[in-house]
């Protein structure tokens, strides 16, 4: 069977007058990491919580490891096989780290080893600390430990690294990659585009309740076929019109040249500069970053919000 671990087709969900999710369809293949991106209120958490069985859907078909999460009768079996981290941290304050993990381990048929999991989320050494005394990021890591303690085949992570310091974030990425390599399917949401870039096999961008684009981090929104972008500081006493190629008006003091042939264009530019005896200070060549593509894709949503905000 080659069908995905998660299959969503024409999903709809509204809260009263708010259409939180409209016509969403996507598939997460076995053993891949799919990142769901999108601005605040785009409907990411709502989608995840429908898949996790917390929320009912208004319409559409949903299949999670062959189980319909809307069906109460198979709820326990579903929860045996999935693990999850919710967007809001929720941990019992008066238990210790180890007790918290051991308690949840007891709920599963075949849990992972408690101390191993504590080590994997970098909480080794804090086992006997009361949860109440942990820092925000440490609590979040404890939450991640609870998500994986049941040895799930599918893991839902709603903004799992929010509040992590850069070191903790990197080790969480490695952890998630290791889980994926061991065969776990992972569906996560994030606001950190770097996280999506380094972690996700595929990304889907949601905006205003629908998926506006889907692809790999390097091809999303036509990123791979986009023009290369050469940027540098305009040499002293020189105007953009004197350049040998067409250039955009300086932005933040940097000239931007868009080109399909970066090698040839660079040669033209550097040759011109050397002949004049000037330098191209702060020279960079790149393609639009995931963030640039993301911002372009979600522009409409942001524009709408700004309108709402300025409405009298």
């Amino acid at each position: 069977m080659t069908s995905g671990a998660v299959v969503v087709a024409d999903l709809h969900k509204s809260y009263g007058a708010v259409d939180a999710v409209r016509d969403v369809s996507f598939t997460v293949e076995q053993g891949e990491i799919l990142a769901l991106l999108g601005p605040n209120g785009a409907g990411k958490s709502t989608t995840l919580e429908i898949l996790e069985g917390f929320r009912t859907r208004d319409a559409g078909r949903v299949d999670v490891l062959g189980i319909d999460p809307g069906d109460r009768a198979t709820g326990r079996e579903l929860r045996e096989r999935i693990g999850l981290v919710l967007q809001d941290i929720a941990v019992e304050p008066y238990l210790t780290v180890r007790e918290t993990v051991a308690r949840n381990a007891g709920y599963y048929r075949s849990p992972r080893d408690v101390d191993e999991v504590i080590g994997l989320v970098d909480l080794a050494g804090l086992e006997r600390r009361k949860v109440r005394t942990l820092s925000g990021g440490q609590k979040r890591r404890l939450d991640l430990a609870l998500g994986m303690i049941g040895n799930p085949r599918l893991l839902f992570l709603d903004e799992p690294t929010t509040g992590f310091d850069p070191g903790a974030r990197r080790s969480a990425w490695q952890l998630v990659r290791n889980l994926r390599d061991a065969g776990t399917t992972i569906l996560l949401t994030t606001h950190y585009l770097e996280e999506a870039q380094v972690l996700a096999d595929r990304v889907a961008v949601m905006s205003g309740g629908t998926i506006v684009s889907e692809g790999t981090p390097s091809t999303l929104g036509g990123r791979d076929s986009a023009l290369a972008r050469i940027r540098f500081a305009l040499p002293e006493g020189c105007t953009a019109a004197e350049l040998p190629v067409a250039a955009a008006v300086p932005d933040e003091g940097l000239v931007t040249v868009q080109t399909r042939e970066p090698t040839a264009t660079l040669r033209q530019l550097t040759g011109w500069a050397l002949r004049r005896g000037s330098v191209l200070d702060r020279l960079t060549v790149d393609r639009p970053s995931l963030e640039d593509v993301y911002l372009r894709l979600t522009e409409r949503d942001v524009a709408e919000r700004t309108m709402d905000g300025s409405a009298r």
Partner: peptide
């Protein structure tokens, strides 16, 4: 209110 009940609900504990 603290989301702890929801967290319990996420496990197979009936």
């Amino acid at each position: 209110q603290d989301g702890i009940l929801k967290r319990v609900r996420a496990t197979p504990l009936p």
